[in-house]
Design a protein around this nucleic acid. Sequence first.
RNA 1: GGCGCGGUAGCUCAGUUGGUUAGAGCGAUCGACUCAUAAUCGAUAGGUCGGGAGUUCAAGUCUCCCCCACGCCA
Length: 570
Amino acid sequence: MARHLITSAIPYINGIKHLGNLVGSQLPADLFARYMRARGNEVLFLCATDEHGTPAELAAAKAGKPVADYCAEMHHVQAEIAKGFNLSFDHFGRSSSPQNHALTQAFAGRLADMGLIREVVEEQVYSNADGRFLPDRYIEGTCPNCGFDSARGDQCDNCTKQLDPTDLIDARSTISGSTDLEVRETKHLYLRQSELKDDIATWIGSKHDWPLLTTSIAKKWLTDGDGLQDRGITRDLDWGIPVKKGADDWPGMEGKVFYVWFDAPIEYIASAQEWVDAGKGTDWERWWRTDKGADDVTYTQFMGKDNVPFHTLSFPATILGSQEPWKLVDYIKSFNYLNYDGGQFSTSRGRGVFMDQALDILPSDYWRWWLLSHAPESSDAEFTWENFQTDVNKDLADVLGNFVSRITKFCRSKFSEAVPEGPDYGPAEDALIADLTTKLAEYETHMAAMEVRKSAADLRAIWVLGNEYLQSVAPWTTFKTDPDQAAMQVRMGLNLCRLYGVLSSPFIPDASAEILAAMGASDATWPDDIASAVTVLQAGHAFTVPEITFRKITDDERTQWAEKFAGTRD
RNA sequence: GGCGCGGUAGCUCAGUUGGUUAGAGCGAUCGACUCAUAAUCGAUAGGUCGGGAGUUCAAGUCUCCCCCACGCCA
């Protein structure tokens, strides 16, 4: 039994995430966590909401609520939706937690002690009307280069020229529209990532088995231009973790907070502390401190490609720079983007399906299956309603659902709602067992390697073997001449249902539970060998014919949904 | 503009260190079966592997150039 620490990239607090976000981190992380638990490993699966920063403040203001209240509400909303998708977090924390405050301040203090923090006085734009410093992207004005009137403070979207906010003509705040802006000097702390460049490069260079997507992004940042740059870790904001050096005040940094990119990944650790403080665990250090039992932990992170730099460079810089025995990530599984019907999902334009909407129209297993079996592993992937409909109907309703339906109903009509007797398994059954054994081994190999799409294809192939078997032995024909033989064939079919309930649970936990319940199966442990796994349900064991496990998506629904989610959500 | 990931059957995608007739699922066509959610099973058709040049006995797989899509950065 091994120990696996698993984290999913933490979703930002301001709103409900879309299916592309879901399949990029939380869902595959859940698949892996469920599989590892099923195989008897000890698993700690953590996630959280990322709550600090300007977007959260603005979203709260728009909602007319104090930012702390807004975040608390949105955290609750996201937690409930996560439950709706059966995301099996051991804890779903908050980056605004007291634990993360203390831990982030402790890391900053430690990094300062190690000489890895430097103070920088820089000029930033202050908006008198808004009463705040404005991040570059919240400043707009006329481009001095091309005259475009909506150039942003960091770049002109029209001519792509890189800009400084002070370059803009008639600069204004995009928050209030005010032009009453001024440049003020402000002091910030920078993490000297450049000092850690070689350490990080060596570490990344040792990871030969990581996805190409992960290492190529990391190496690009390490080698591009002058290499890894120092990065500001503080901001002039109200909402965030106050800048402190451990428990002590940080002279000259009063009223400032840590920059969200610095405190967010530290929440991975803090979430484990929250897990303990919530009474759900007893010892977080044996997961995170290599000097306190975490040296045998395998740590795997899941994330979309946009998050790779933070996990391959920034967070490791924090960990390595501390020179404290924190657990470093062992494997980073990164994903490309899921596109929606020929374009991008768009949060601002409401284009595509968002997590709450998805659950409103179909049970989570439909989404889990489709998204995981089309996970954007090697390149960007494409969601279309046509594909979703045909794939879900074929895989879930026809191949799996109908298998359970046909065998249970046949048994009920020819025998009873109990496993029939019959002779021992014969050559056809031995052949089936051999095929299942081969396929299961492939499934397990791909699951352990986090090859999500291939795992889904393997699982589907295992379902198909059941239909092939029934088709070839044809118990409905056998029954006419040799009811006893038919009974044995049905017994095998019913045992396959139970087996499928067990093997499918990482992908489709609800349907798996329904199947297992219908089969009256108390044993849901992962099979050591197929031969014994298909004898678990013995003659006389009662079962019930389940309701339709997966209904089909109709053409009407498909066209209706395609229209509904085409854009502009209110 | 620089860089990155891609461009393989109608669709969604696999193709290990270059090596016999390029694979899967869906869709299509034909057939079998009738227990089942008009489900299932089998068979067949369908690709000059984005374009061009090169290296090699041999290239989807390596090198160079170009085109297209997407993304990141400046």
